[in-house]
Amino acid sequence: MSDTVALTIDNVQLQGRPGQTILEAADEAGIYIPRLCHLKGLQPFGSCRVCTVLVNGRPQAACTQPISPGMVIESSTEQVREIRKDLIDMLFVEGNHFCMFCERSGNCELQAMAYRFGISAPRYPFLFPSRAVDASHPDIMIDHNRCIRCARCVRASRDLDGKEVFGFVNRGPHKELAVNAAARLVDTTVDVTDQAMNVCPVGALLKKRTAYVVPIGRRKYDHTPIGSEIEGARSQ
């Protein structure tokens, strides 16, 4: 078995390693494929579909699709960009994402993704669902209004913290994050030092009383768009 796999992404030729996903190979090559549910260090999940690429013309999620020799991948073509914009729009309208007062504003990956794609308002109508806030825990809060069902906290709690505090219940549009307790977060074994507390891409799983401590201008995405850290690796 060869120790490299040759493929092209947007006409850039690159060598990946066997067993890598498209997204991993692209990251190493300094090519940013947008993603929301994926986080390095967690099992690939493939739910947001924002990393959708065309592999030899067929749509695939880059975060779960392993590379194979000769793959021809389209990632930043107009067609793929439009699909991603649709998906980002859907995530916005599905929940209640009020960036203007959300404490994750400026550090939110969903918001940063919208900015990266030049989305100022979604093209789909807001669904304005009625969703709850679970503030029962003294140090942690879940604002279900902003959950994008990415399962990062589910995976981190299960695989990194060994706790399985989070999971999903119900299906379709009613699918929602739930906690491993009769009803409330306070009744679980979650702790504010859990790794699961550091992975939420949006303002859904929050550490209490830490909001707005970082002033505007010093937040994660105030000056460089999301993905710059990966694209920066390429230019070096």
């Binding site: 379709g172 549009p173 699918k175």
Partner: peptide
């Protein structure tokens, strides 16, 4: 809408839209 498992964005949200 009723039968979607809700796992991925396009099926969970797109069908409702």
């Amino acid at each position: 809408v009723d039968e979607s498992c809700g796992y991925c964005t396009p099926c969970r949200v797109g069908n409702v839209l």
